[in-house]
Amino acid sequence: MTMETAKRIVSLLLQRGVLIAVFLLLWWYAAVQLPSFVLPGPERVFSALVGLVHSVTFLHDLGATMGRVFSGFVLATLIGTPLGLALGSSRALARFFEPILAVLNTVSSAIWAIFAIIWFGISDATTIFVVFMTAMPLILTNVWQGAQTVERQFIDLARSFRMSRWQVLVKISLPSILPYFFSGARLAFGFGWRVSLVAETLGASDGIGYRLRQAADLVQSDQVFAWTLLLVALMLLLEAGVLKPLERWLFRWKTPSR
């Protein structure tokens, strides 16, 4: 590491530290002015957070929500990717199905959640369905877009080596689409994660969304804040610990200027 980058990291850490301090200070000041069920102070929320993490149902709730988000997301990938590839390979097919996609994109996740309760009741399927309906169109659209950018020249190259259609798909099309898929999947996962909580407040008897609603019903504002902090921390961790490194590794072949 050079002196320059070391300096930049130190200055960044300092900036972040100041930001957190300012935030905590404002929070604390506001909490003093307001009743605690409207805005609990930092110390209350932290003790609620500690209590939360040590509670018996914590791991179960976290696992339940994660499981649903992942199931919905994996289903969306498994179905959205081939559909996107199909639309990308045929213009006629794409023209025919385009309106459906527009409709899917305009329907709010809350509406999917209500439908899901009608169809699946209080069950895992409700949340999985809502995550799926939110994530699938995003993945489909991105894969479709990516499929349209696959370079004819590379396909001809593969054909000049007498590669089969399957080989062309695996060795040319999929790697070309991967950057589009990745940004779509990332978006889909973020949205899926957020709407899963909405779905759980309506149609689940466990999971983070359910706990949030329970806390709200009992006016345990500190619990709500604790969950919120926890979720934010989890998402940041996922972003910095998994997604960013994965992206850097997957697309290490790209020109650094881009």
Binding site: Q153, F154, P175, L178
Partner: peptide, 8 residues
Amino acid sequence: EDRLLPWR
């Protein structure tokens, strides 16, 4: 063109 695959 050389047609090198950029991801390889």
